[in-house]
Nucleic acid binder design. Structure first.
Length: 546
RNA sequence: GGCUGGGUAGCUCAGUGGCAGAGCAAGCGGCUCAUAAUCGCUAGGUCGUUGGUUCAAAUCCAACCCCAGCUACCA
């Protein structure tokens, strides 16, 4: 836990074929929180997220719309970036698989695998949809003995075989098994790790990494005879084909660290500390990816965290089912801070969770408007009224301070363990304790006694409100990774300068700021109380139709 | 089919041998600083089913019924 630690965190790159739903951005919000937490702690932090833009599917969809693939991808990427901006996502780089340095990184990874003897030309067989491309067995449907593509039911599928490059995953079975055993923290949560380990033990087959058809992809850099596919004029021989799926998408993580043209940067940032991904791509990240890295002489990432999905009425949220929440709607209703908080408080970060618009509004009102927002508001209002805006200092009673200490320890542990929903739960114990303290001490009663000349009541009142102000300061700061604009607004109302930048960089070490009474000796003036989280009427908060 | 996780209050979920819990929603009361907020109290469950082990089972064992995941090339 050195204060100058570096922390490199990534999300999966999103397939840029449509506008994003909240279920897609869920992991980006979570990773953003973890990144901000590390920035505020003082770690040198790099947060990478972006989009996956190659594939015949994208080219096909673009063609249907009468567009070039790049034009289509640009439009969708703009939708992703717009939604991420609305959610205050703070990537240090937004990577696209069309970025020139990514193309170079992919080709270099292929060359290294080739130099290491890990790729070879083999035969790939499968169903081929003339309108779309190769289809996986799980992506075709068989009706009365005829196999069809669900996207193009009138098109006759062909059984094709083509010569493709294969990656020798089978050569890495023992090493992968050993890696899982020696590093149980590598793939988490445990039940996901066990699934992956079971898969490895069941035997690993090689997988194809190139496609002969399709031009919307990264040129494969090697000809079947092993020579370079780059021609004298710098262009690539189309006969070499394109890089297929995982040898394109996964490599964004090393591109984003500086591979291969920035060796110093890459040495600094790699291996990544954490890949945050969904359960659907766990195998590719925890099995394919380490083997690909080892083949290139690189280290595996330190941790892969596998999260679950958002469900509505038992079904996975998805764009094809049309049962997804639009992140823009959620931000419009709850605000960016509210959308982030509610999403990560309602949805467990380690498993599937049932969600609904009503549950989001209920959670917003209960936790933010009623509990936390009202605590801030009543605290600031009373302190202003009873002490003419002078900020009271913490008192000698350690009651709330002790609650704070326990909650903070729990909060930190759960954040470190990627249990973001439980982390917030720990913090809200302090909100509850502070609200109960108000009722127990009845500051308004003390204020009347003080006005009547009771000096002891005045001292007590100052201490109680000082403790409440301090609890508000600490909770606001600690929750800042989740609610990055509410935190500075709260601190301003409490009469403190907010020392961190918009992305969480630049301030003092958070551990120092989160000590109870860290600013006890400093005078300050409270600002006028203004509700941070206006209460929502359920009817008024319905998302726009469509 | 095999393996894994789950089935507990109206809802979302904790709880791995010792008197069934939390939050939200509901009802009642208190308070008045506050965003019709807050604080307290109450109600609400055959712990999927059936057997078994045990002084004692939500918890351990067996069988069965549901739901979800994994069981290789979709981003």
């Amino acid at each position: 836990m050195s204060p100058a630690a570096r922390y490199y965190i990534t999300t999966a790159i999103a397939y840029a074929n449509n506008r994003p739903g909240l279920h897609t951005l869920f992991e980006v919000i979570g990773a953003d929180v973890i990144a901000r937490w590390h920035r505020m702690k003082g770690d040198e932090t790099r947060f990478l997220t972006g989009t996956d833009e190659h594939s015949v599917n994208i080219a096909q969809r673009a063609a249907e719309l009468g567009k070039e693939p790049l034009e289509f991808a640009n439009e969708n990427v703009a939708l992703f970036r717009g939604a991420e901006d609305a959610l205050l996502i703070s990537p240090d780089r937004f990577i696209r698989t069309i970025d020139p340095d990514h193309v170079k990184a992919v080709q270099e990874m292929v060359r290294r695998a080739h130099a290491n003897g890990d790729i070879y030309v083999g035969t790939y067989e499968g169903w081929y949809c003339p309108a779309e491309g190769f289809k996986a067995p799980s992506d075709v449907v068989e009706t009365s003995g005829v196999t069809r593509c669900p996207n193009h039911p009138t098109v006759t599928l062909e059984w094709l075989s083509e010569h493709n490059w294969f990656f020798r995953l089978s050569a890495y079975q023992e090493r992968l098994e050993r890696h899982f055993e020696e590093h149980p923290e590598f793939a988490q949560p445990d039940y996901r790790r066990n699934e992956m380990l079971g898969f490895i033990r069941g035997g690993l087959e090689d997988f194809s990494i190139s496609r002969a058809v399709g031009t919307w992809g990264i040129p494969f850099p090697i000809m079947p005879d092993g020579s370079s596919s780059q021609r004298a004029d710098g262009s690539w021989d189309p006969d070499a084909g394109t890089v297929y799926v995982w040898y394109d998408a996964l490599i964004n993580y090393v591109t984003g660290a500086g591979f291969p043209d920035d060796p110093a940067g890459f040495a600094h940032w790699w291996p990544a500390d954490l890949h945050v991904i969904g359960k659907d791509i766990a195998r590719f990240h925890t099995i394919y990816w380490p083997a690909m890295l080892w083949s290139a002489g690189l280290e595996a990432p330190r941790h892969v965290w596998i999260h679950g999905f958002l469900l509505t009425q038992g079904e996975r949220m998805s764009k094809s089912l049309g049962n997804f929440l639009d992140p823009i709607d959620v931000v419009r209703a709850l605000g960016a801070d509210g959308a982030r908080y509610v999403t990560l408080r309602e949805v467990a970060f380690d498993k599937d969770t049932e969600v609904s618009w009503d549950s989001f509004v209920r959670r917003y009102n209960a936790d933010l408007a009623n509990d936390f927002g009202n605590l801030l508001n009543r605290t600031i209002s009373m302190a202003n009224r009873y002490f003419d805006g002078e900020r009271p200092a913490v008192g000698p009673d350690a009651g709330l301070a002790r609650v704070w200490g326990e909650a903070l320890a729990s909060y930190q542990d759960r954040l470190a363990g990627c249990l973001l929903h439980d982390a917030l739960c720990a913090l809200w114990d302090v909100v509850g304790a502070a609200n109960r303290l108000v009722d127990a001490e009845q500051p308004w009663t003390l204020a009347k006694a003080m006005k009547a000349g009771d000096e002891a009541a005045g001292v007590k009142l100052r201490a109680v409100l000082g403790d409440l102000v301090e609890a508000c300061r600490l909770i606001s700061l600690a929750v800042a990774p989740f609610m990055p604009t509410a935190a500075p607004r709260a601190l301003t109302q409490l009469g403190y300068a907010y020392p961190y930048g918009p992305d969480g960089n630049g301030g003092p070490a958070l551990a120092d700021e989160l000590r109870w009474g860290a600013h006890a000796g400093e005078a300050g003036r409270l600002a006028t109380a203004e509700p941070l989280f206006p209460r929502l009427e359920t009817e008024a908060a319905t998302p726009a139709a469509g």
